[in-house]
Amino acid sequence: MALGGVIRGTTTTLRTPTEEDLAAYARWMADLRVRRIASIWHEPAMPDTWKERLKEQTKEKDNVLWSIEAGGRLVGMTRLGWGWEPHRDSAHVDQFILAPDEWRKGYGSDAALALHRYLFDYLDLRRVALELHADNAAARRICEKLGYVEFGRGHEVYYRDGAHVDQLWLLMERAAWDERWGAEHREYAPLGTRTVPGSVSHPKPQAKDGEREERENT
């Protein structure tokens, strides 16, 4: 659970992080453009420390880390935590960071959609939540498009560029996913009705004429 596997979007791919990714991680976490709009994973540190952090991440049972690629380049990372035991039916996006040089190319939207498809369509989660800096307009647009709604607002939580900024708490329910994306964004084609080899097939009971329409609509 600690390092994520491959999730393919249209222009991006979420994949398992490697030690080769860590130099870029370190660069992003030290970039003021990133730090002003997002919560970073770790503070800048020595290369060996980053290796140790990745090693520790592999042991984590409560969260998962992915690197994000586009066009064969490493362009970002994301990390999410699972909800409370014993249900584990929700997730929380802790980090979602794109390299500043890769902003405004649609990679954030594509990777976010792919990630949520995995969470709802593959893991069958009930909901996903996250926090945003209130002035992160690009992230807010992505979240609104996905189907997130605001459920709380912390005041003057973050301090950057000489001033405080609020924190938004956002939530996306499974129903929002199903309504907006469920029909078209599936990783695998529907299997349809299948008969297990060797099993007995029971014919459906025939409806009387007056009942047919009602049954077909239920």
């Binding site: 939540a129 005041h155 708490w169």
Partner: peptide
């Protein structure tokens, strides 16, 4: 109070 998290636990 600054928000309400709906349907948090059962």
């Amino acid at each position: 109070q600054v928000g309400t998290y709906p349907r948090s636990f059962f």
